[in-house]
Design a protein around this nucleic acid. Structure first.
Lengths: 227, 227
DNA sequence: GTCATAAGTGACGATATAGTCAGAAATGAA
DNA sequence: TTCATTTCTGACTATATCGTCACTTATGAC
């Protein structure tokens, strides 16, 4: 009896109703992504999102408490997924230059087919500068930064302070996003990889140089810190 | 008589009325700068600007046709002044590394005491990614880019295509703004210059490497392109 | 001082957007 | 099928913001 009931539950683990809710939610998030990338988060109105999602306005409030709530979820989703990709593809790189190159490549691959998410990411970064912004945006950004910090920390042998590590991670992120935003503007439709090959290696070289100089170390440690 | 009249005009070249208009206009622009840096351009309402400027709402429309108009003027002012600083302080640098370092320093010096303008600049860059943004924002950005292009063009001896030059300028701007945004986030109140010394040189090194590789040149030209 | 002109003002009507809620539609259990 | 429960809906109200305009104030010519 008990076993039978469990089997029943497993058979159709996700009932239609639950699925419907999920579908609506996804529609809303996806629609918001699109509209945000066209008009910006602030200028977007709720109606535009629900209309694009082909749902009634009330549905929006069934899923989110307001625009800020949706933005928080969206930002968290994007940054968590990006952090996931970073963990997946960069863990194996123990050499700093290769690691940095891998980090850059993950960003490029992640955003190259997801323009909306890139715009969201960039706008989120811009909003971090404001004193009155959407609350809660910073949390997923910090988590994302910490992911990069962990990767870099494990690639360098020397013990390093939290503050310096944060500084390095910010440099990486700042450069990568600046670099990527350039790539977007400069190369319209052309093959991004080719145009950016030398820039990527230049970026890695600059970052390695920076990290080496940022590391607190004595003379005799110099040769075993970074290759 | 004619001479006298001219003298009269010169004596009080700017009549009080004109000055009053200028003062109001400046008040509005300054207030907008402040509010924009707190809430972002989109989220800011006209009343907030006029209230901050301590002026009536109608005055705003005496000076600007709407928020977009004001934003255009603001963006143009900031970028023109930045371009002016670039021209003033970087003209004499004929060596590429020194030139790039000078360009970076101009940005740092320009923004370090003008937080509002930095936020504006960053938001403007973010808005360039949107399909429906404030119209006319791109023009001053292009002019600013062209200023950097001219500087770099005169520092490298080889003839270079407009497209490659634009790409290089975008790289410089992207890196510098990414770099600066990192600096802002990472160093709170600390002396920015010290913390960023090595990063600056790393950035210059990376950019020089990138530019060298981006230059179309034959083997025999290699040694006279960039020192 | 007087007056014509320019600039500033803020209450007001028009418009737009947010958030709600009573009813419609879908779902799933019996 | 029936019906209780969940989700969706979009018309509606309340609120917020815009842009205007009749009026006030400041300016400068005479």
């Amino acid at each position: 009896m008990m076993v039978l009931e469990r089997k029943e539950r497993k058979k159709r683990r996700i009932p239609r109703q639950k699925r419907r809710v999920q579908v609506s939610r996804e529609k809303l998030l996806q629609a918001a992504r699109l509209v945000f990338s066209e008009k910006g988060m602030d200028a977007t109105r709720i109606d535009e999102i629900t209309e694009r999602a082909d749902l009634g306005k009330g549905t929006f409030y069934n899923h989110f408490t307001g625009k800020g709530d949706l933005i928080r979820h969206l930002m968290k989703d994007v940054l968590d997924e990006l952090a996931g990709d970073l963990n997946e593809h960069c863990r194996e790189q123990s050499e700093l230059p290769q690691l940095l190159d891998a980090i850059i490549m993950v960003h490029i691959n992640f955003f190259s087919k997801r323009w909306e998410d890139y715009v969201l990411y960039f706008q989120g970064r811009a909003d971090l500068h404001l004193t009155h912004s959407y609350s809660g945006i910073d949390t997923p950004f910090i988590k994302y930064l910490e992911t990069i910090e962990e990767l870099i920390d494990s690639a360098i042998q020397s013990k390093i302070s939290k503050a310096v590590l944060r500084r390095i991670a910010c440099a990486v992120v700042g450069f990568v996003s600046g670099y990527y935003s350039f790539a977007i503007i400069a190369t319209e439709g052309e093959d991004v990889d080719k145009a950016l090959g030398s820039l990527r290696s230049a970026l890695v070289a600059g970052l390695v140089k920076f990290i080496n100089e940022a590391l607190p170390r004595t003379a005799e440690e110099n040769d075993r810190v970074v290759r």
